[in-house]
């Protein structure tokens, strides 16, 4: 009975507060991570030499840098050169960079898989390269990148817990605080884990629906 009261009156309210912060982090980071990922992938695939180099350098840097280190640099390092962010903003910027860099690799692979003839046919109709990429190449590439982007979104859900290291009390952080205070590690982290599992399940189901909605009949292995 005591456990039930702990769960309903203390644990769940605290975790829900954390969950809201987690969702805010994801909602703030994911769209920009997606768009920036597209930009980087297009820049690397179709850009000039300078653009290609800049995009590749960015991706290499992000890939090579542990996310936690990146967050520390953004939050603790940048103030020394006069740039300070709130913990939440620093975390979101870190997540955007990470999400974008990995998304860009999935999207780049998909761009490269679109047959050359698609671009040729689009240009033969009078489209500029930009129009061809926007209306012909990207729609095909993004369909093929859906599984990869979904994967990266799921990673984002989970690495959003690193925001706790910048004092953003999100889901995992909220759990840690409750667990430590009431010495209830097992129950608390079980619930925290279930909530993450719920988020990931919703993501997977949604991604499947999106994939199905945009599937091209007869094509791409269907």
């Amino acid at each position: 009975m005591e456990t039930m009261l702990f769960i309903s009156d203390i644990l769940l309210p605290a975790l829900l507060e954390g969950l809201v912060i987690t969702l805010q982090l994801i909602v703030a980071a994911a769209p920009f991570g997606f768009l920036l990922g597209i930009g980087i992938a297009v820049g690397r695939t179709y850009g000039g030499r300078a653009t290609e180099f800049a995009c590749k350098a960015f991706v290499t840097f992000i890939k090579g840098c542990p996310l936690l280190l990146l967050l520390f640099m953004l939050y603790f390092g940048l103030p020394s050169v006069g740039i300070s962010f709130s913990p939440f903003v620093a975390a979101v910027i870190g997540f955007i960079c990470c999400n974008a860099a990995y998304n860009s690799e999935y999207i780049r692979g998909a761009l490269l898989s679109v047959k050359e003839g698609q671009m040729i046919a689009a240009q033969a109709l009078g489209m500029t390269r930009t129009q061809a990429i926007r209306f012909i190449i990207l729609p095909q590439a993004l369909r093929r990148a859906i599984p990869g982007i979904t994967n990266e979104f799921i990673y984002l859900i989970k690495y959003s817990s690193l925001a706790y290291m910048l004092t953003v009390i999100e889901l995992a952080g909220a759990g840690k605080i409750v667990a430590t205070k009431y010495f209830t590690y097992t129950e608390t982290f079980l619930f925290v884990g279930l909530l993450y599992l719920g988020l990931v399940t919703i993501t997977t189901v949604t991604a499947d629906a999106i994939e199905k909605k945009y599937a091209v009949p007869g094509a791409m292995g269907r």
Binding site: K115, G117, Q118, A121, Q123, L125, G126, M127, T128, F135
Partner: peptide, 29 residues
């Protein structure tokens, strides 16, 4: 790009836009 519109091209391997229906292929440009 203006000239290319005026010079319709048909390819050996069709190069239809894979993600668009026949009518969308024709209307998109």
């Amino acid at each position: 790009n203006a000239f290319r519109q005026k010079m319709g091209m048909v390819f050996q391997n069709f190069y239809l836009f894979d993600h668009l229906t026949a009518v969308r292929n024709v209307e998109i440009a």
